[in-house]
Amino acid sequence: MTSVDYNEIHSKIAEALPLSTMRLRRSLYAVMDFMLDYTLTPEELADYLRHGDDAQVQPLINFVLAALEAKSDVIEPDTDTAPSSKERLDWVLSQLGIAELKELVVDRFPQAEPIVIVEENFREWYTDDREQKNPNYWNDYVRVLSRNGWDAESIATVGDQARQVLRRLEDPTAEHYRSTRGLVVGYVQSGKTANFSAVTAKAIDAGYRLVIILAGTLKNLREQTQRRLDKEIFGREAILDGRDEDELTPRDIKSEVYFEGDQEWETPWNERGGTFLSHGAGYGQNGFPKLRRLTTSKNDYLSASGANPIVVLHADTDLPLHAAANLDKTPCLVDAGLF
């Protein structure tokens, strides 16, 4: 290229480094050359990192941050570097073949805006180690936000906002009980849905097994919120709830609006234009609990047929429900109802 086209590089990197898979077996240059028939030189990539705007450099920065924070068992090839460590960052950049551009990459990492916090008197439990133990729902939500066009700085901001809320809640694995109340206030169109979605994702990862979202006072607002949560947090697996999509009964089809010719539902997550998240093979494993929707795209507690009953599964009855060994195997009940 005689002149660097930052928008074209943005498009090619987004295609070469999808957040749905953490594959770092080949350098970025090799992937773009062999898979996309597109030649990118180190000089052009450096210019892109120096002068591209935040939206233009988003695909590369988001991928590096996701790989930096991901659990080792979801990255290919295997690595013994710890998430969020200097060693992990060096490994990621080396695998991508851009180690010499480390300073430029780090300079483009987002700096989250400070958050206004009123309550500073709380017991610290949500440490970095705890947050990184099972970040499955949060990592999936990051992929959703990135696919929806969020830049790395905005994702970091909503992640930090959710982190500050979680820190001020109670540890769900603690033996004692302490009631915690709080209020998060946001302006109209300020990202409140993304905020409580991020809190939901991190809360499930931390061990909470009942999440109730007051989705509005009007039926259409509840359905709108339910759909967004189904697409971005709960995912296809929770909606299907063990049913085979190719063998739905007439009763199954009537149970969800998505099964009645919904165009967004009919586009798989791994295809271009897919909007309903799929959690993948790890869903339902220890630390990545299944979700059980108490409300659906059609039903909530005020509808004629009502919502699904609340049933708490106690995996090991010899241990209290709040024991980590139980919570890791216990499905999380999620509810988006009218109030």
Rank of each mutant, 00 (worst) to 15 (best):
W150F: 09
R209Q: 09
I75Y: 05
P77H: 13
L313Y: 06
V105L: 05
T296C: 13
L19K: 07
S190P: 10
R168V: 05
A304Q: 15
Q132W: 03
Y6A: 08
T296F: 13
L169R: 01
N299K: 12
D335C: 13
Y6P: 01
A281K: 12
K12Y: 03
L333W: 07
V334S: 05
P114R: 13
Q226D: 04
D5F: 04
N195L: 14
I155E: 01
A323G: 10
S197L: 10
N220H: 10
P172D: 06
V185N: 08
K192Y: 06
S11K: 09
G159Y: 11
Q111T: 13
G216L: 05
T225N: 10
D318V: 02
A206R: 03
L277Q: 05
G149A: 04
G52P: 00
E170Q: 10
T173F: 09
N136D: 06
G182A: 12
E260Y: 02
S27I: 05
D300C: 12
S197P: 00
S303M: 07
T157P: 01
D107E: 15
M1I: 12
K254R: 05
E100N: 07
A215Y: 01
K329R: 15
D140P: 01
Q224C: 07
L19A: 11
Y141A: 05
H314R: 06
G284E: 11
L313A: 12
A323E: 12
E264Q: 14
D244K: 00
F259Y: 08
Y137I: 01
E232K: 06
L40Q: 02
Q111F: 03
R147K: 13
L89E: 09
Y187F: 14
P309G: 15
Y301C: 08
R168Q: 06
E247P: 00
T79C: 11
G261C: 13
T267D: 02
I239T: 07
T2D: 07
K202W: 00
V105H: 07
R147C: 00
A30H: 13
S85A: 15
N134I: 04
T275V: 14
E76M: 14
I253S: 03
E260Q: 14
E103W: 01
S3E: 07
Q56V: 02
T21L: 03
D5A: 15
N139I: 00
D107V: 11
H314F: 05
A336S: 10
D262I: 12
Q111E: 14
R272G: 09
E266T: 13
D107N: 15
F122W: 07
N139R: 13
Y208R: 02
L294R: 10
R181I: 13
K231Q: 15
D160Q: 14
F122S: 11
T200R: 03
G207S: 02
